[in-house]
Design a protein around this nucleic acid. Structure first.
Lengths: 373, 373
DNA sequence: TTGAAAGCGCTAACAT
DNA sequence: ATGTTAGCGCTTTCAA
């Protein structure tokens, strides 16, 4: 008690007394426990060589007073905030694209879990700086940032790098963008795989439903398709639409099947393409997979129970989200410096009826026999 | 220049010189601009009565040095961080439920936009404290928190309230949970509405696909259903399953249609129920809507192009996300104190073929004529 | 109109 | 084994 010191006591007297019950500070705990603030700090943070008795005592007192350390003060002092920025390319006013919902939601979920498990939290930030009058970016102390789909010459990434903050991107950066590390799929290989799969199922002319945006995913996938066509000797049959507009997708799907050189198989690069193509096929009286083979890139489970179920390509967003965060935190904490800075996550093709010309068993037994058999 | 003071100069000499180009601080800007740090602060924050010339000059210098104010220092000094926590009830290890993806993604997106527009950012946090060895909650300075679906006696909410932080919940709190405000739909009215809609379409026995969880949404919706049954004189036909398990949903849908007292209409409380019920109906050879009327609660657009399209109830997550954030920031900033603290957002029933016994036009003309008519 | 100085609450280097 | 002290970088009285 006596050792608590004059400073604390006088401060408590003059500042605290008359105000309403304000959050207890480290000094209050020190005073109540009869130790110095250093001891409190050490006891709570597991530092120093304190006897267990002291440590336990201090913790009890802190608990009793409902003491919560000030995150701001700790951050100011240590230079680490435990906060990781999460940024997604913006279309229009919305922070992320509608068509990428399932992908983004899964990726963000995995990233959140991975971050929390290592004691960090994610802060959602806009890809465009100065969205609001006050720049949110400068209002938050970040230890590093995850950037999803960085633009070709992303100004946010550049600025972050200039500040010396580690940046890890989901999606390989174009050109010389200075990211600390990146995680991505091998989109070209994935597309070639699907085209071969469709060809093996009997496709003679494969169409592509693609986007008008110039992000890496769209660009790589489309050029892989064009290369494949050139190699095989097939004329490309593709329709592009602005991927952020859900209605445009339905129209593009329709347009693709309305062409004179109508494809007998289609790969759609975006999540809703499956249902859109299915609907378009119905409108034209095309049977799937008999008249039209179908694959789309999606993370949604609805394609397991559509009629017919649709073959999908999963980009494994969970694995990507986890990997991105691990790489970032490793960079922040300076561990695993020997780890590769580029990580390629394998994709998974989930083959369902829509791309199986060989097994047209349209009659499926119910899992168990209903009353009326 | 001379006015910059001894302190700054000596610090620059001793601390800065030999280390690598570290972020410029307010003192560096002050020195370079030949003013005091007070003037820099005022110039950058639009405070004080500085002549425009001074203000512009300081801003130029700051820009040139690439000065970024320290968020931690500002937070420590002002007590405001500009950070809002976003918490979702956890099932298992994952921070949020699979079945609520679309709802949550939309709600979070709207909340993020609304927050950014007012200069705040969202931090994703686990509903369960102490998920990781270090408690992330105490590592971040929050101005307030949004809680999605608070538990009946949510310890996180209680602790936050104890700390004097404003808490706004998406979903009305049970009992005496001390939230500052809440936003919710009128789930009971929505369910009654749907049941009446189905009855009007000719349903004689309406079933319910519900959850085993005890959250408010499930509880209110189920009891509204039971009340309706009692009032109408129908025996309840319901199947409950753990909503966080996507496979369990398919099984429950199947079970519901396998019952001896098979319903001729079903309302499913969760997003994937529509596709699951559609698949189950196909297995039992039931035509929708002729043999079975279908409605489910969903935010997904896939139900617009399923076969047949499914009637859905939207909870309007965008409006909820926006409202929740507005109420929270109002509370943080102490404005609009007169605003109601409980806000009910109307739901929207999007009627599609699956619940229209009257208009069985199964043949639809394509939006435009294809080459082969 | 501008500047000096006092901390915000904590951690870490350095006493004792 | 524990305490004293000096800041982290900023905002904010108060004085000039």
């Amino acid at each position: 008690m006596t050792a608590a010191g004059k400073h604390q006591v006088s401060r408590t007297d003059t500042t605290r007394r008359r105000s309403r019950p304000v959050r207890a500070g480290i000094r209050d705990v020190a005073a109540a426990a009869g130790v110095s603030i250093t001891t409190v700090s050490d006891a709570l943070n597991g530092k120093g060589r304190l006897p267990d008795a002291t440590r336990r005592h201090v913790r009890e007192v802190a608990e009793r007073l409902g003491y919560r350390p000030s995150a701001a003060a700790r951050t100011l002092r240590t230079g680490k905030s435990g906060l990781i920025g999460l940024t997604v390319t913006t279309y229009g006013d919305e922070p992320f694209t509608f068509t990428e919902f399932a992908y983004f939601a899964e990726m963000a979920r995995a990233a959140t879990s991975a971050a929390l498990a290592r004691g960090y939290a994610l802060v959602i930030l806009p890809a465009t700086s100065r969205l609001s009058p006050v720049d949110v970016w400068s209002n938050v102390a970040l230890d590093g940032t995850v950037v999803v789909d960085p633009a070709d010459d992303d100004p946010v990434v550049r600025e972050l790098a200039r500040q010396g903050l580690p940046v890890v991107s989901d999606g390989r950066p174009a050109g010389s963008l200075p990211v600390t590390a990146w995680v991505d799929n091998d989109h070209e290989a994935a597309v070639l795989d699907i085209l071969d799969h469709l060809a093996a199922a009997g496709a003679r002319r494969i169409g592509l439903l693609t986007g008008t945006t110039t992000d890496m995913y769209t660009r790589l996938s489309t050029s892989a398709y064009l290369d494949w066509c050139a190699r095989i000797g097939q004329d490309p049959v593709l329709e592009a639409y602005p991927a952020h507009d859900p209605c445009a997708g339905a129209v593009a799907a329709d347009r693709l099947l309305a062409r004179p050189d109508r494809p007998d198989a289609v790969y759609g690069l975006f999540d809703p393409n499956g249902t859109d193509l299915l609907a378009a096929a119905r409108r034209y009286g095309l049977r799937v997979p008999e008249d039209l083979l179908l694959v789309c890139c999606s993370e949604s489970t609805v394609y397991a129970s559509t009629e017919p179920p649709v073959t999908t390509l999963s980009l494994k967003p969970r694995r990507i989200g986890t990997a991105v965060v691990q790489l970032l935190i490793d960079a922040i904490e300076g561990v695993n410096q020997d780890q590769p800075v580029e990580q390629v996550i394998p994709t998974e093709l989930i083959v369902r009826t829509s791309s199986m010309r060989r097994s047209p068993r349209t009659t499926v037994n119910p899992p168990r026999s209903p009353g009326q058999g």
